[in-house]
Design a binder for these strands. Structure first.
Lengths: 202, 202, 202, 202
DNA sequence: TATGAATGAGTTTTCATTCAT
DNA sequence: AATGAATGAAAACTCATTCAT
């Protein structure tokens, strides 16, 4: 598997999916704060894990805690929002990969892609990991995220590149597992990914 | 991989290694409390993870916190004690598997075995996970645990049953990953294990 | 020794040094709480010593423990704050006494002054006592405090009013000793001070 | 002041006064435990201060905590007992000094003697220090201890060697003060004692 | 009588969440 | 709307004292 034979969209960060806030439109300054908070939360959750205090997040975002709570009534909500924004980006990428010539390459590339993203950004790992819990998908985005992979998987299986018995749940487990296990190191685990992909081949 | 062609010791729980309490013999009542505490800690760590408070453990064991601390001076100590008893059992099993006829079967069986144990007991998962971080192995038991797998791995690679480029670190990542990923479900992830094992074959 | 021939500032409590709160201006309510806390801590440390719990201080101040910790992240910090305010006042006074006409009177007055302060406030005693142990002076304030006395001592010795062999360490011991010994009583020990001063005369 | 011109009884440790336990006669083994406990408590209070736990004392004495509490119903009681045994020895010495030729020497020697003892043995310091609190003397021994000094003081004042206005309370404060202040150092504070004695001269 | 296991209130400190300014 | 001060329920751990063995 190589991502070279794929029209890679490395820096593609069109947040079109995130842009839609839950409720009504926010005032400009409120939206700015919300973005700032998500941005800070991303960085902070990535480096420190979910254990950072809300005060710390508020401090780094340069706002009061009250403001954090205005936007995210619960710490879990903030964390969830971080998850969502990351997933949105990846969902888009999955959709584009559906058009790729080689279904096997597309799937394996995406599989490795997610791991790569997660390694480089603990927030994504957290996002994916926690999306297991919200399993059936409390959020639309979480559902879409896994559906994106599922589509690539189905196509790859249909083409015979991926073993027929693999299910999306298994992919979930593999991804979540490897992401959590390598989360701290920061290095892409080539051999391990290679093992997983070989195990997945049809 | 099939565990059937192995003199399986599924229920084998000979705790010969664990049975030896650290110090001298305890008074009857103290021993009863210590056992009760370990028992409660097992169950509680398994279901709720290590986040349970010592007060909660004391409450469920029907003793005062002071008693918990008399037996286990630190929460880490209590957690460690729970872990050690499990690991000790697994280590013993690994050593016995070194004598098995088919090195490949032995390794793959043990690989699955650990996952099975971890699935059944969150404490084991936590233990294995934390032993990765302390990498070189602060504790003798942790070192022995990984050494046991490494021995089986080397033998299986030598016989050609496992791919030559796999290293013990990769096995760690795979185990830790899958254990964390499936920890909540409680079911043995047959297909996922099959994928991993296929990916590991020589 | 007589403090009468000195422009005595018995009640002089110009807190010019203390008056400046550490950081920025606090919100009205926060400042009120901070003041209340310092006030309570003063009284409580004075009467009960530093063994009082933070909960107790919070309770007496009519605030939650969290509030105490917001203002003083550590018990030591709270204690330190109480102390600093007292020492700051005494340091200033020592500096002013350096200008006094009679070096002997100045020294003896200050010597008695400190005792008087310590008698009236157990926190000061504790502070002075603890500043002995940290000998070289962990805190700037502690160093300045003793330097203030040392300056007065040197001047008095040079003028022949105080025995030449006395060293600042001796003064420390005498002050600390008498403060601790009379701490509980609450009365100024006239005769004892007189004895000490006679023993110190040149 | 010199102790050389006095028939010094440096090692004199006849505990005749202590030997009388509060209640009835104890069984031999019980008495042995009581002695052991006092011995340990002496050493331990001296070096660690009153903050040592009862468990620690029991451990060092090689008995169970229960035994400690059988002999001393309260930690305070144990501490009190330590105090008493030390005072008893000093009381005897004071009584013998009443026969000394030079009343001034006798008093000053005893004064220094107590300091010396206290410096060498924090338990004594604690004993004397805490006897201030039990002021009027909850215990007979405490009363006798101070009466011993008072007798020496009166005789010295009558002979004109000690200033007439000094009272036993002042001596208390001076002793307690210097003992507490130099307690940690372990060195006899020559200059400070010299200052005190000069201040006390008639 | 001795032992040491058990107790549990109390200690310092943290942090998600609420609410007055 | 934003702020950040206040809250108080934990959490881990200690230790004087009691009591079953």
């Amino acid at each position: 598997m190589s991502k070279e034979n794929i029209s890679a969209r490395e820096g593609d960060t069109t947040d079109s999916v995130i842009a839609t806030p839950p409720e009504k439109a926010l005032r400009a300054d409120a939206q700015k704060n919300r973005d700032k908070l998500l941005d800070v939360a991303h960085r902070v959750f990535r480096t420190e894990g979910i254990s950072v205090s809300m005060d710390e997040i508020a401090r780094r975002a340069g706002v009061g805690v009250g403001t954090v709570y205005r936007h995210f009534p619960t710490k879990e909500d903030l964390f969830g929002a971080v998850i969502v924004s990351h997933k949105a980006r990846l969902i888009e990428e999955a959709n584009q990969l559906l058009d790729h010539d080689d279904p096997g390459d597309a799937f394996f590339y995406y599989f490795a892609r997610i791991i790569r993203e997660g390694i480089a950004n603990k927030a994504i790992t957290d996002a994916i990991v926690s999306s297991l819990n919200i399993n059936t998908g409390r959020s639309e985005v979480a559902r879409n995220f896994w559906r994106g992979i599922d589509n690539l998987l189905a196509r790859a299986q249909h083409s015979g590149s991926v073993r027929a018995d693999a299910r999306i749940e298994d992919i979930k487990v593999l991804l979540i597992g490897i992401l959590q296990a390598t989360g701290e190191s920061g290095n892409f685990p080539d051999r391990v990914v290679s093992i997983l992909i070989d195990g997945l081949r049809g």
